[in-house]
């Protein structure tokens, strides 16, 4: 039988893959956003596994709100990304250092 532990370890692995992706691709803003989405999917899997095994619907409601916030975040994040590209001509992290003293 599949235990809750299997789902938790699976989502831990996927979460860490997303984390490693942020380390590896730290120059490309689009890939960073996609890694954050991957980590969110892993966390949502956690929530749904707990919701299923505990018999409580609150976890699924929480995932519903996480999906809403993540959609809003992506819309604004890609808007900012487009602005960065328009003003700097590149989407590398290295060009976004105007706040550096």
């Amino acid at each position: 039988m599949i235990t809750l532990s299997d789902y938790l370890i699976l989502s831990a692995i996927v979460f860490c893959i997303g984390l490693a992706g942020i380390f590896i691709n730290r120059t490309n803003i689009i890939t960073l956003l996609m890694c954050v989405e991957l980590m969110l999917a892993a966390v949502n899997t956690n929530f749904i596994a707990f919701s299923h095994f505990m018999g409580d619907q609150a976890g699924q409601i929480f995932v519903f709100f996480i999906l809403t916030v993540a959609a809003a975040e992506v819309a604004i994040g890609l808007g900012i990304l487009t602005l960065v590209y328009r003003n700097k001509g590149s989407i590398s992290i290295d060009v976004t250092n105007s706040l550096k003293g």
Binding site: S5, L8, A12, C16, I17, L19, A20
Partner: peptide, 18 residues
């Protein structure tokens, strides 16, 4: 990146084990 990921996976597997 791989080092941090492997360490975090090992720690979480210990905590979330059977």
């Amino acid at each position: 990146g791989l080092g941090v990921a492997v360490i975090v996976i090992a720690e979480m597997s210990l905590v979330l084990g059977v």
